[in-house]
Simulated assay, not measured.
Amino acid sequence: MPSPTQRVLARVPARLRPFLVRHRRLVKFLVVGGVCFVLTLVIDIELKFTVLEHKPVVALTVATLIATAVSYVLNRQWSFRAGGRQREVLLFLLVSAAAIVVNDLPLVVSRYVLELREPHVGPFVQEAADFVSGMVVGTFVAMLFRYWAMRRWVFTRPARPIAADPARPRTQPPPEPGYAAHEVPQDTP
């Protein structure tokens, strides 16, 4: 029985399949990020308009923390599938803490440096500025940072020595980082 990834790839136009397979980690990371973005947005809005009405940075931080926990599970189980547990969890927490700061910075600048908040601006401008700075700019910059840091430090596979293969042409590119030449990921067609 084909995996869920194989079933989705079967529905993608044939000319796009090689690109998606070649960049499968990035595609999976972006899917997880999309799910967590929606989760962050829903929680942030709920908190901002209820219990944390006058604390938008705290609301965004709490929403991001919850989505980060979900992100860890999804990335660990699906996107990267690698790494030693104790070291991985510690590094994930460190990277996530830095990413939360990166995510919050545009909102802090918007609210408290540029003063895009009431009474300096109207409620609509305040909410639009909060959304653009916190959810769009902050999330985008934090996503770039997370992908780079997770791939580099958190979800890594120990490199296996690759024996010299005389049949392998020298012009062939090296295998994707994290995979030995003879490995094929489980979820590719």
Rank of each mutant, 00 (worst) to 15 (best):
V141C: 11
L16Q: 09
G34I: 02
K48L: 10
V57F: 02
S96F: 04
W78G: 03
T61R: 11
K28A: 10
W78Y: 08
P175E: 00
A167Q: 14
D104K: 04
K55R: 14
T40D: 15
F131Y: 14
E46F: 15
D130N: 15
L47I: 03
V101M: 06
G122D: 03
M150G: 08
A82N: 08
P119M: 01
P4F: 14
G84S: 13
L52R: 03
Y112S: 07
W78F: 05
V42F: 13
E127N: 13
V62E: 11
P119Q: 01
V137D: 07
V27E: 01
I162R: 06
F92K: 08
V51L: 15
E183W: 04
L47M: 04
G134M: 03
R15A: 13
F19G: 01
Y179T: 02
L107A: 04
T139L: 06
V113M: 10
F155P: 07
I45E: 11
V89D: 08
V51W: 13
M143T: 15
M143W: 15
L60F: 05
V89Q: 08
R76C: 05
P123T: 07
V121S: 04
P161W: 09
A163T: 12
R22T: 08
E53L: 10
V141P: 02
W153I: 06
P119L: 02
R81Y: 00
P161M: 02
P177L: 01
M143R: 12
A128R: 12
Y112M: 04
R170A: 15
R152Q: 10
P174Q: 05
V125P: 06
T139F: 15
V73T: 07
P4W: 15
R152D: 05
L9G: 05
P173H: 04
L52T: 00
V35K: 00
F140I: 08
P119H: 07
V89N: 04
L114Q: 01
A180T: 05
G83N: 09
P158T: 11
G134D: 07
D130Q: 15
L52E: 01
G178W: 02
D165M: 07
L144P: 08
Y72I: 01
V38W: 03
R111S: 11
T171D: 15
P4E: 06
Q77L: 12
L93Y: 11
V113F: 12
R168V: 05
V42P: 07
R81K: 09
P106Q: 03
G134T: 03
P13H: 05
I100T: 15
L41H: 09
M150I: 05
P173L: 00
A10Y: 09
G122V: 00
I100G: 12
A97E: 05
R85W: 13
G134F: 10
V121E: 01
Q77M: 10
P174F: 03
R76Y: 13
I43P: 10
E118T: 10
A69Y: 10
A142I: 02
G33I: 00
V70C: 14
E53N: 12
P166H: 02
V62H: 11
A10I: 09
P2H: 12
V8S: 05
A149F: 14
M1S: 14
L91T: 08
A59M: 00
L94T: 12
H54R: 12
Q86S: 12
A159E: 13
T68N: 09
L105P: 02
W78I: 00
Q186Y: 12
V184C: 02
